[in-house]
Design a protein around this nucleic acid. Structure first.
Lengths: 251, 251
DNA sequence: CGCTTACTTGAGTCTGGTCAAACGGGGTGG
DNA sequence: CCACCCCGTTTGACCAGACTCAAGTAAGCG
């Protein structure tokens, strides 16, 4: 378990938040912005592999990702691991724990990350006084639920090839919405082990499945990542129609 | 697709709501109760098999279950079906659609049901003016997310036998919290087809798996339902520790 | 009484799992 | 500088859990 780096002295002010300026995210009005600024207590930089939340822990914080990737997962006693979802810039982490008590899943950094730190205790004020943000919070939770629904369908009823194509198409679509904030929108920083643990497949079978997608020219596997060559082709293999919501809120 | 019955003229007033009196649910104060009473626009009775929400539709309503069971599910074009979760008395249905637009899953009644009907449009007032209820709404969404997380772990990484045991233990635990509102807390009103579509298994294999649990004396399959004989035994087979949150909010 | 729905059971097949081994690149300590 | 090791990827051989096909039973209903 890697330690988090010390927060750097200089911090991004919420007014100048790089996410705010993106057309993909809904903007705040002055009053909301004031609250968010007070709500934010700092920033944190994390190395790949660092733990943001540990299953069973009771964290006092919430995070919004400024840059980098993370993933949420659960593990069974004998080590079997299931990755639940990936988190990208603009995503909120730790809401479940804030509302329901202790975390029942872990969260780990996949790449170097920067996150905003919020104080769990201040959430009360948000619900009491900032109705529009309370709405946003529920919206965010509902969105995660919808993603999990689709993922459940995938693991439960799609074949290995469909599953793999769906996952890559999904991540590619998410990345696409972040054009400008992330470097490349075509390379997913995941290993085949991550893919396997997301799809509920063995590593060996995952490798063979991904090979089929490579051979079809839809992706190219490289160093420690997956390059998306034809997102449309992936979507077709997966039998995927729906798109992700357009403009969305964040905190 | 069965039609919903006409709402009966007599309706349960929120003041006398049978769910409120249960120790399992958090109670409202007078102000909240006033809002909920205005928020509720009627009641609906549904036959088994009736559709509450249809994937792709844009419903103007939200429901809270007063009695009976429903289930949420998605289907692929070729008919493969995945059941996402079950909904019992006190559960809220349709929140996803209210926030994100059209429904991306369907909901169907499993037994005869009674539901409270709420107007989607009035939610705005809830966020703006009733902070405690806004909190509850987020709480409810976070709880569903947590359930889906666990379910995802189950389908992705547990064996068929573990999965089956987990599902039955989970449903049994949920029923247990509703002692008093439901008739028996030991009989789940589901068919093996439902179990199969929840676990991501074929019907035949599900049958053989459930047989093992029967032969171990943990359950007894009957008519169109599953009788739980030893919930602890099921939990053990599933390797399940966590319990569901105690007192919880509802609308 | 015939039809439908739910549950059973057996036989054969196949998708996906396990085991084993090897390769290549990057880091590290001798 | 090089040997070694670790991690991520790849491949082949074999195995098994889960699927499909098929058929049969039992209960409920018009």
């Amino acid at each position: 378990m890697t330690r988090a780096k010390e927060a750097k002295p200089e911090r991004v002010s919420c007014e100048a938040c790089p996410l705010r300026s993106m057309s993909h995210f809904r903007d705040f009005d002055a009053r909301e912005l004031g609250f968010i600024s007070r709500f934010k207590t700092g920033e944190l930089s994390l190395d790949p592999g660092a733990t943001l939340f540990l299953e069973g822990a009771n964290s006092a914080h919430l995070f919004t990702i400024l840059s980098g990737w993370a993933y949420r997962f659960k593990i069974l006693e004998d080590g079997r691991r299931q990755i639940l979802n990936y988190a990208l810039p603009g995503d909120l982490l730790g809401l479940q724990g804030s509302l329901l008590g202790e975390m029942q899943h872990s969260v780990e950094a996949l790449t170097p990350m920067k996150v905003c730190v919020f104080e769990r205790a201040r959430l009360k004020e948000l619900w009491e006084t900032y109705g529009s943000l309370a709405h946003d919070l529920t919206w965010i939770a509902a969105r995660e639920e919808r993603i999990l629904d689709e993922h459940l369908l995938s693991i439960g009823r799609r074949t290995a090839l469909e599953r793999a194509a769906y996952l890559l198409a999904f991540l590619s679509a998410r990345l696409e919405t972040l054009k400008g904030v992330v470097g490349s929108t075509r390379v997913l920083p995941i290993t085949q082990t991550h893919v396997a643990d997301t799809l509920g497949l063995s590593l060996v079978h995952t490798n063979k499945t991904l090979r089929k997608l490579s051979n079809s020219g839809l992706i190219r596997w490289r160093d420690r990542g997956c390059e998306i060559l034809e997102a449309d082709g992936l979507r077709e293999v997966a039998g995927w129609k729906e798109s992700l919501p357009g403009r969305r809120p964040f905190l």
